[in-house]
């Protein structure tokens, strides 16, 4: 068996194969449910119901999708330029950290001023977290996979230190958590009484902006050129280093916004469990979306739905919640396979 390039993958290939991958994912997960001794269809039904079956479930899914849209966009932007940002987790925490430092009473400003300041601070924080690895990559050729990945651990320990020390909430009964943001620093809810905050709206706006940036601006053209063929891009006079640095700033900034949105919209304070790996899951989200910024919204909703639905399902049926991880892992692997098969066909001999 060999692989042969497909000259022009038509729509059937570019859309059909990913659809097939999702179908395969569901089939494999259902087989596992069967092994766990449950009725696969019932499990599937419970997951869907848990994800979108009620107003509460749906809002929960949208809330969970919000940080994933930000980190998914961060990864999608960076990967487009072949800048392998594995450090969205650290960038998220940096964004959250700056929002908390500035938003817990340091700046006595009205919400209309404070919120934009916190947003910009979070963007700057996240961007700076990726700037270092990007400089090391462009100047010294240091592999950014290693530096961004390791910075995640540095950052989590740094936040832990701050939460046990200077940022510790004196009223927190000894828990490692920061003080709560002041009311002016909180993102309002989109609809009164419902748990969905404006972070979700901000995420959608960001997705649209990133899409416009990639398809309509000179920078977007440069980023795609550098990602597809750095050699040809440099030959044509595209300033490759500058483009990589700009990409890093955008990517890190988006991940920083995820941290801001989580503390200002949902949690209200910074804790060590602010992100259950949103930075890493962002990679899955971006890959499932084939790095398309609008696709990131869809895939983030899908991933969030799987998590929320599987949580709710495991409470009702005797299938462990790990099925969510398996579902996502299978979805990712099958999607990668589907992407390859859109460009290559398998031939015998």
């Amino acid at each position: 068996m060999r692989l042969e390039p497909v000259a022009d993958p038509g729509w059937s290939r570019t859309l059909g194969l990913p659809a097939l991958a999702l179908g395969g994912t569901v089939a494999i997960a259902m087989a596992l449910a069967l092994v766990a001794g449950s009725n696969p269809l019932a499990v599937l039904g419970l997951i869907v119901k848990g994800a979108v079956g009620s107003k509460f479930a749906l809002l929960e899914t949208l809330n969970r999708a919000t940080p994933l849209i930000f980190t998914g966009l961060a990864v999608a932007v960076a990967f487009r330029a072949k800048l392998w940002n594995i450090g969205a987790e650290a960038q998220l925490y940096m964004g959250a950290l700056l929002a908390v430092v500035l938003g817990t009473g340091l700046l006595p400003l009205p919400a209309a001023l404070l919120l934009p300041i916190l947003m910009l601070a979070a963007i700057a924080g996240g961007a700076l977290m990726l700037l270092g690895p990007a400089f090391l990559k462009t100047r010294l050729g240091v592999d950014e996979v290693v530096t961004t990945l390791l910075l995640n651990f540095v950052m989590i320990l740094f936040v832990s230190m701050l939460l046990e020390g200077p940022l510790k909430d004196p009223m927190g009964m000894g828990w490692p958590k920061s003080e709560r943001l002041v009311a002016e620093a909180r993102l309002p809810r989109i609809v009164d009484g419902l748990r969905l905050h404006w972070g979700f709206g901000l995420a959608l706006i960001c997705a649209l902006l990133v899409w416009v940036m990639q398809t309509r601006t000179t920078l977007g053209y440069e980023i795609r050129a550098v990602g597809l063929n750095q050699r040809a891009a440099a030959f044509a006079g595209i300033p490759v280093t500058k483009v990589v640095i700009k990409t890093a700033l955008i990517s890190g900034g988006l991940a920083g916004l995820a941290g801001f949105s989580e503390v200002a919209g949902l949690k209200g304070s910074l804790t060590l469990d602010l992100s259950p790996g949103f930075g890493y899951t962002g990679i899955i989200v971006a890959m499932l979306a084939l790095l398309n910024p609008l696709g990131v919204v869809v895939s983030a909703l899908f991933v969030a739905g799987v998590f929320v639905g599987a949580d709710s399902m495991s409470r009702a049926a005797a299938v462990p919640t790990y099925i969510a991880d398996i579902l996502l892992a299978t979805a990712l692997l099958l999607m990668v396979l589907a992407i390859m098969l859109t460009r290559f066909r398998v031939v015998r001999g």
């Binding site: 053209y221 440069e222 050129a225 597809l228 050699r231 040809a232 891009a233 044509a236 006079g237 595209i238």
Partner: peptide, 21 residues
């Protein structure tokens, strides 16, 4: 193939590679 053009770019995108800005 590797220096003169970006193979996954369209003809249009390649046609302005040296003057896009």
């Amino acid at each position: 193939h590797r220096t003169g053009t970006i193979s996954d770019f369209t003809l249009s995108e390649n046609a302005v590679l040296e003057a896009y800005e």
